[in-house]
Design a protein around this nucleic acid. Sequence first.
DNA 1: GAGAATACGGAAAAAATTATCCGTATCCGA
DNA 2: TCGGATACGGATAATTTTTTCCGTATTCTC
Lengths: 146, 146
Amino acid sequence: MYEKKIPKDFSCGMAILMEIIGGKWKSYLIYLIANNVRRPAELQRAIPSASRRVLDLQLRELEFHGIIKRVIYPEMPPKVEYFMTPFGESMLPVVASMETWGAEYMETFRQLMENKQKTMHTDGECVEIKKDKPVIRGRRTLAKAV
Amino acid sequence: MYEKKIPKDFSCGMAILMEIIGGKWKSYLIYLIANNVRRPAELQRAIPSASRRVLDLQLRELEFHGIIKRVIYPEMPPKVEYFMTPFGESMLPVVASMETWGAEYMETFRQLMENKQKTMHTDGECVEIKKDKPVIRGRRTLAKAV
DNA sequence: GAGAATACGGAAAAAATTATCCGTATCCGA
DNA sequence: TCGGATACGGATAATTTTTTCCGTATTCTC
């Protein structure tokens, strides 16, 4: 594993949760494994936009953190399956609530971002913005304004 | 803001939530602001391990994502306050559940990590590990074992 | 026997995030 | 008038994460 240089401080709950599910695909992996998608190749097919390598790495980390368990069947061709540990299962409600919130506010979020886009790329007239943003944003402008 | 090169896909709830609170200190900031720590300097004092710069950046992003609102009082010396937006408040229960889970399992997690440490740095005898890990971990070993 | 599937790892490049250090400006108090 | 408080931004370095591309090995099918 990559050797970290900046020590981490796990004195608060969020830090721990983030350490565990912070990776780009980890929450997907947890979700999938909890829903019986167990084998590496299946997981890769389920998340095609992720490279095989990262999924591997993140699965290792989830295993390292005690969230999932890797079971190897000594067969040929190789067979591996992942299972949630009890510790991992304990976090499913949290993951679910995160997913639920995100899904519920997906539209809100998208529309918000769309509006930003508009006001950011329109070089012609971003009137409302020009009205207050400079005053709000710039230090210099504020100074002048006062 | 840093211009991203890999487009993001917000088709799932987790991705949205992560986009919003993924930053290193964002959840702290949300927590603090929701608990009436409003002014930039206060926030910085509350999170001394974070550099001023990152907090600024992450506050900008939270504002950009519609989670908090920045209110400028045109005074001298400068005064700024952050407030949760309704959208931001809607995510407080989720943040709370994340924090709660993390706090609840903090000890579990720490002990787990401690054990890993032991088995990783003991060069003398990590007997249990040697018994099964190599078989589990290495491809080659498995091949031989079969 | 070539090519698919299974599973995995190393090395290096690319991308993203965070840290560090510099600067701006005003005001207040010693 | 100097140091500290307020608040902020640019540029660059360091760190971390993710991607890409290479390789290993076995078995089964065509």
